[in-house]
Design a protein around this nucleic acid. Structure first.
Length: 567
RNA sequence: CGGAAUGUAGCUCAGCUUGGUAGAGCGCACGGUUCGGGACCGUGAGGCCCAGGGUUCGGAAAUCCCUGCAUUCCGACCA
């Protein structure tokens, strides 16, 4: 490609809307432009990279035995009503009507459509297992799009769906996809962790794993055990339930006054209480009822875990007015006693030998409260957010926290969708059975941003060779110099002929402009054709290290051709 | 969905406090000079100052007030 004719609008300054490095660099390097919030155009350079990443994804999917299809982006509401997600998916689902006022959606994901296809076409166990995938534009009406294509409303996703006769089959398909995902990320040159995750709105009963690219700007937190293989999204992560030792005989509960105490912090600083022994009671609105969640004063309720434990659709904290009506007191003195609503107690509270709890009347607390003796509960489980420094559930090692960008998520759906949409087949015995499904997503456009996030320096992007938009960047320092121009042109011609992807900077620009643009764009190798072209010599410069070698033009051509052919 | 900030030239911003009809740097076009890390000189094009309403000097608003919209950031949600 001749740069003089290439639509590559680089920016010298950082656009004010961009906050994180990948967003800034993708704008500056002329890869993307924003149309409206969360919706981007890919310019030629950006689209080249996107296609490189897509190719890697395709190769690994095909290698894993998946078959590529293309499903419609526009889908009838009826399918979503059938699966139950018309209600469950919420406002992220973009809904609209056609001219006949028939309700439609713009697909945020494709479980419904693919399951519909399979229920129509698959009749026999002989047709299974099967894995289908597509690479397609998805639309999710995000509350707050941000960070460029990292969290966009319209984005490119690879989604795959597996169909098996039973759970053992699903395990095999899941493993195959899991491995393929690891290969994709490795080939993209990424440092990542695979973590246990909460399946969220996709659902399914078999659990899920997220593929997290490690990055400071990642929106997810991961807890990782350095001693064993345990790693989980903070939404899901567990730590060992604390052991307190036996307290012996605990005296009966004792009422005491805590005037004006509104928070755990107040109880600590003004009344000298240890938060670890306080029972914090939070009132949640769960779907259409209220639930009291009890955790230790120093712990946080994990709403994702709470939602899962209660099998709820929606969980949100009640406001103070509601709390007053339900408990007889406001924030700061709510206790677990005598509540009419369901109580859910965290494991760490249930194990507590004794503690301090609110009295459900203003300014009153009780000490020597023994869970099980002084109050009961309807449900118990792990509902707190695990923290760095706590002991790993698996091995007791000390958990560490990292930030990550979720670029992939694999789910064992089981029969959630196949049952709702009755996707069934006949087994060897002629019995009708429900298809067991898995689904597997990679945010392809997000992956591009994640790569930039991990591969840049203060001058610009530094592409890993596998996804670089071009293999080599040929830069004649001065295009008006006859010798330099012809040498560069000749290199360009030869390499292009041999299948190497070359960007030739044939612009009549000053060297500084060219070098800065080249560093910004980040092609891995720069072949600089300068004064010594007259002696048949050029410079071979690695973008990553800045290391320069002087080579003969022929040798540079050979090396570049080798890179182009994938060596 | 709550909280905050910002909307002026293609980009980055000044001007707003104190109302008088718009500026800089970069970029762009043309000419000249220059040519190994974003050069220099000259000339020029480019703006319903986000939109709508209001206020006042009867007849001055980028600037003051109100409403809306957009963008961004911070919190609650997800590939």
């Amino acid at each position: 490609m001749r740069q003089s004719r290439y639509f590559l609008p680089t920016l010298r300054e950082i656009p004010s809307e961009a906050e994180i490095p990948s967003h800034q660099l993708m704008l500056r390097a002329g890869m993307i432009r924003q149309l409206v919030s969360g919706i981007y155009t890919y310019l030629p350079l950006g689209y080249r990279v996107l296609r490189k990443v897509e190719r890697i994804v395709r190769e690994e999917m095909d290698r894993a035995g998946a078959q590529e299809v293309l499903l419609p982006a526009v889908q009838p509401a009826s399918l979503w009503q059938e699966s139950g997600r018309w209600e469950d998916y919420g406002k992220e689902l973009l809904r609209f009507q056609d001219r006949h006022e028939r309700p439609l959606v713009l697909g945020p994901t494709h479980e419904e459509v693919i399951t519909d296809l399979v229920r129509q076409e698959v009749r026999s166990y002989r047709q299974l297992p099967m894995i289908l995938y597509q690479i397609q534009t998805k639309f999710r009406d995000e509350v707050r799009p941000r960070f460029g294509v990292m969290r966009a409303r319209e984005f490119v996703m690879k989604d795959a769906y597996s169909f098996d006769v039973d759970w053992e089959g699903l395990d095999r398909s899941y493993q195959a996809m899991y491995k393929a995902y690891e290969s994709v990320l490795q080939r993209c040159g990424l440092r990542f962790r695979v973590v246990q995750a909460d399946p969220g709105a996709i659902g399914g009963e078999g659990g899920s794993h997220e593929f997290m690219v490690l990055s400071e700007v990642g929106e997810d937190s991961l807890l990782v055990c350095p001693r064993c293989s345990y790693a989980a999204n903070i939404e899901k992560a567990r730590s060992k339930t604390p052991e307190y030792g036996s307290a012996g005989d605990v005296p009966p509960m004792e009422r005491f006054l805590t005037p004006g105490a509104r928070s755990i912090e107040d109880l600590k600083t003004r009344f000298g209480l240890n938060p670890e022994t306080i029972l914090k009671v939070l009132i949640y609105r769960v779907d259409d009822r209220y639930v009291a969640a009890v955790v230790r004063g120093d712990h946080e309720v994990n709403e994702v875990k709470l939602k899962r434990l209660l099998n709820a659709r929606r969980v949100e904290l009640a406001d103070e007015e509601t709390v007053r009506a339900l408990t007889g007191t406001g924030f700061g003195s709510v206790g677990p006693f005598g509540l009419t609503m369901e109580r859910v107690v965290d494991d760490a509270v249930a194990a507590l030998p004794e503690g301090v709890a609110g009295g459900n009347e203003p300014d009153v607390h009780y000490r020597h409260v023994v869970p099980g003796r002084d109050f009961q509960w309807e449900k118990q489980g792990d509902i707190r957010t695990a923290r760095a420094g706590e002991p790993c559930v698996e091995c007791g090692g000390t958990l560490e926290m990292y930030r990550g960008i979720e670029v992939g998520h694999v789910f064992k759906l089981g029969t959630k969708y196949s049952e709702a949409l009755s996707a069934v087949f006949l087994d060897e015995q002629g019995r009708q059975r429900t298809v067991v499904m898995g689904c597997y997503g990679i945010g392809v456009s997000r992956l591009v941003a994640a790569i930039v996030e991990q591969h840049h320096d203060d001058k610009g992007i530094v592409w890993p060779a596998s996804v670089a938009p071009f293999h080599v960047h040929v830069i004649p320092v001065n295009i008006r110099d006859e010798q330099q121009r012809t040498t560069a042109e000749e290199l360009y011609r030869q390499l292009t002929e041999r299948g190497t992807e070359v960007l030739l900077d044939d612009r009549d620009e000053r060297p500084g402009v060219k070098f800065n643009d080249a560093d910004l764009i980040g092609v891995p190798v720069q072949v600089i054709v300068g004064k010594r072209a007259s002696e048949g010599l050029v410079e071979w410069k690695w973008r990553r290290t800045g290391e320069v070698e002087v080579l003969s033009t022929e040798e540079a051509a050979e090396r570049a051709a080798a890179i182009g052919s994938g060596e």
